[in-house]
Design a protein around this nucleic acid. Structure first.
Lengths: 338, 338
DNA sequence: TTCAATCTTGAAAACGTTTTCAAATGCGAT
DNA sequence: ATCGCATTTGAAAACGTTTTCAAGATTGAA
């Protein structure tokens, strides 16, 4: 592949001149400029971005760490980040941590080694202090979907407690009193927050919390399915279920329908996230809207602005408030229960 | 951030020695090695991968171009590629083309400029000759989900015609004779192939092809919804629908259910792709399995092997055969029709 | 103790850019 | 023609690595 020297030689000028026309960083007389342009075209020359990044110490890349690449939730996060970064003429490098501490660490190392100009990080597994050490680096970094005490200004997050509270309160207001919670078995903050929200709503309605009504499994469809089976087998007289995410809700619904229970006639279900899936399920899922696309976009806008104040600053609160999306998976509490 | 010189200074050795311990490319006496290791640790040194890539002319990155980042189909493709590339200790850089010619071109440029060692490309918009020009470059490149004449050995693709044939034949074998096809309005090879498969099955059953029974819209849920509405409004006595992909099938089903039609009792539906969604729809969607994860993994294995024959070669045919997945969205043709 | 063979080491060149700096050129005014 | 000034140019250094090469140190045998 042709390099800048080849172009210089072909155009009969020095490499400096070629560099100048590439970046038009200084004036070059018209005929030389033409010669350079022609040579670049003829040789199909493309500047080596690695060399360029090396000398500029700027790679024009924003690194993004997500949980999985293959998930609607992270898909929306990636899309939000991609969108604003591309609009700024920069690029995104995505890596996935699969909620595993070593993989998350490796991924962040990779992004740093690649000399990304800024980072947007979604980490579930890394401990706070390790993230803080990152934040102390002098590159723009935003943490998404997690709140680190003392670093609120660097975190774009959702009020998970309130989301769970909303969901549970909705069920309670429909007359449900025996509400199961299907949670994640990954030890992660938002998991704990959601349990808190669930408990707070219960308390508000003077419904005693019953540990047996909460089941924790892996937060995917299968996990939801298994958890639901477990709840049913416990025979707790449950009339409603609130799940950690929509995928688990989907699994729970499938399990219920397969075992002859009608949703929502017998059992109401509320999910969390409002991924595309939620609208397509049958019954359409009542859920908590998690504006993850917007949060990704905001995180990206913030780092872009920190990188270069020519990019619009995002004067928005970093804390997002979830919202209840009522669809068709909730009914008034029925006498029949499981 | 500390560089190799700082480490050398701190350890009291030359940069060459540091480099040697980093890569253990040559022997270094134990005490110096220890000193270097200690200095690296103390300075939190991480080699600059850009500089490294520059001199090695090897970036340890595989570039991947997909259609959208936020889609279950491409999610599976990315996951497949990610998986094998990571297992080989290399990294993936993903870009999205959004089925737009300029964006696809830019994305590929970006990956090439970044000096990716190899490329896996899913392109809908770029013309054949432009892709051929890429294939002629001397870096490993595999084209996914598209067949370029004369370059079969560089394309990992699905027999789309056969998939559509299978779907249509399934419907015909269940007694359906008035079968609508909801296709994509994007001018792309696989779109045309699927129409062919649909027509071939029709011919085989001596059912005349009726252009009015095919509606083309944007290949997403909304497109499917609109297309279905259009089909219904045409009053063609249709008893079954075959759609270009599962998202369109979801949209079509939603439209039918909202307008009081029962699926599959009145209308049968068959999708294409078998994304996660298909299993979760109600009724669960009968569809054509598109093994996109496997195809991504195969493409990745091939380029990895071309890069370095120490990676296992993938002795597999590059052409994948779709398979019918029977679930619950198809019934025998009913007398009532729309 | 000496010599050759082997190990270990550091200086310097290379990768492909951008940028600084000083030299060369062009131009208008005298 | 000459001077001064602004414009345009190229050589060289820099970015952070790896690698080649030759020199220096060490070892073992004679």
């Amino acid at each position: 592949m042709a390099n800048i020297k080849d172009v210089a030689k072909a155009a009969g000028v020095s490499v400096s001149t070629v560099s100048r026309v590439i970046n038009d960083s200084a004036s070059v007389v018209p005929d030389k400029r033409q010669a350079v342009l022609a040579a670049m075209e003829a040789l199909q020359y493309r500047p080596n971005s690695l060399a360029r990044a090396l000398v500029n110490s700027r790679s024009d890349c924003v690194g993004l760490l997500v949980g999985e690449i293959d998930s609607p939730f992270f898909g929306a996060l990636m899309a939000g980040v991609h969108h604003v970064v591309h609009d700024s003429g920069k690029h995104v490098i995505v890596t996935a941590g699969y909620h595993h501490i070593d993989k998350e660490r490796d991924s962040i190392r990779f992004l740093l080694d690649r000399r990304c100009d800024a980072l947007v990080i979604h980490s579930k597994a890394l401990p706070d202090d390790e993230l803080v050490r990152l934040l102390e680096l002098d590159i723009p970094i935003i943490i998404v979907n997690r709140l680190i005490r003392g670093w609120e200004h660097r975190c774009v997050y959702l009020d998970n407690e309130y989301g769970a509270y909303l969901a549970t309160r909705h069920l309670l207001s429909k007359g449900h009193r025996d509400i199961a919670y299907i949670g994640t078995n990954i030890a992660i903050e938002d998991g704990a927050d959601r349990v808190h929200g669930y408990r707070r709503a219960l308390e508000e309605f003077s419904v005693p919390f019953n540990e047996r009504k909460v089941v924790r499994t892996f937060p995917d469809e299968e996990g939801g399915h298994n958890a639901m089976a477990e709840v049913v087998s416990r025979n707790l007289g449950v009339t409603a279920v609130f799940t950690y995410n929509d995928a688990m809700a989907a699994g729970a619904i499938t399990m219920l329908q397969d075992s002859g229970h009608r949703v929502p006639e017998e059992i109401s279900v509320v999910g969390f996230d409002d991924v595309i899936l939620a609208r397509l399920l049958n019954p359409r899922l009542t859920t908590i809207r998690y504006p993850v696309y917007e949060m990704g976009a905001l995180a990206a806008r913030i780092v872009m602005h920190q990188l270069d104040s020519k990019f619009a600053s995002a004067d928005q609160p970093l804390r997002f408030t979830p919202r209840l999306i009522e669809r068709q998976s909730v009914r008034d509490a029925a006498p029949v229960a499981v």
